[in-house]
Amino acid sequence: MLRILDIWKTYEGKPLLTGVSFDVKEGEIVCLLGPSGSGKSTLLRIIAGLEKAESGQVYWGNDDVTGIPAHKRGFGLMFQDYALFPHLTVAENIAFGLRIAKHDKADIKRQVKHALENIHMQDFADRSVTELSGGEQQRVALARALVTNPRLLMLDEPMSALDQDLRAYLIRDLSSRLRDSKKPVIYVTHNRQEAFDLADRVLLLSEGKIHIG
C-alpha cells in the first residue's frame, strides 16, 4: 500500500535520514522504533506531507504522492502532544475533519456520536478539551484522526505525554482500537516494549537508516 523509497533529509546541515526505504501492507501495524533525535518524527512528517524530503518518493499503491500537499493526501496523523484545538469542544474537535470535507450536519452529528461512543466518552461531547486528562485527550485525538476515514494512520509517540501507570493499561486499549480500524498504521516510539507489544513488524531507525528489527 504505502511505499517509501530512498528518503534523504538533512537537519541543520547534518544528515538525518540517509536513504530510508520501507513499505506498509494493508491492515498492517508497523512500529518505527528509534532513539530520540533519530529522525522518526521527521520521517512521519515527510510521509504526511508536512515536510519535504531532499530526495526520495512516497508512493500510495502506484500513485506518487511525494508532491501532494498534506491536506490532499488523505493520511491521518496523531501528534505527540495530540494537538487538540483548545478553542473547540470535544465534539467540535472530532467534527473538524468532517466539516472540512463538507459532510452534511445530520451526518456529522451521527458520526461524532458514534465516534464518542467508540471511545466511551459520550458524556464529554460539550466539554472543553483543556479539561480532559491525558488518557482522555489521547482517545479524543485518536477518534478525531479516525473519523475522517484516512487511508493510513500515523501515530507519533502517542504514549509519551502519559504517565507510566496509565501506559500499560492504554497500550492494550489502543492496540485493539487500531486493529479494529483495519487500517495500515505507522506507530512511532522510542519504547522497545511498546513497539513489540503492538506491532506486526518493528523497524529500527538509527543513524539515518532502517534496520529490520
Binding site: A48, H71, L77, A83, F85, F96, G97, I100, A101, T148
Partner: peptide
C-alpha cells in the same frame, strides 16, 4: 502542530488559518 493537525484533517492552508 495546531495548524498541521488541521492540514492532516484535510484543511487547506486557508481553512487552517481561518478556522484554527
Amino acid at each position: 502542530n495546531m495548524i498541521e493537525a488541521a492540514y492532516v484533517l484535510q484543511a487547506s492552508p486557508f481553512q487552517a488559518w481561518r478556522k484554527i
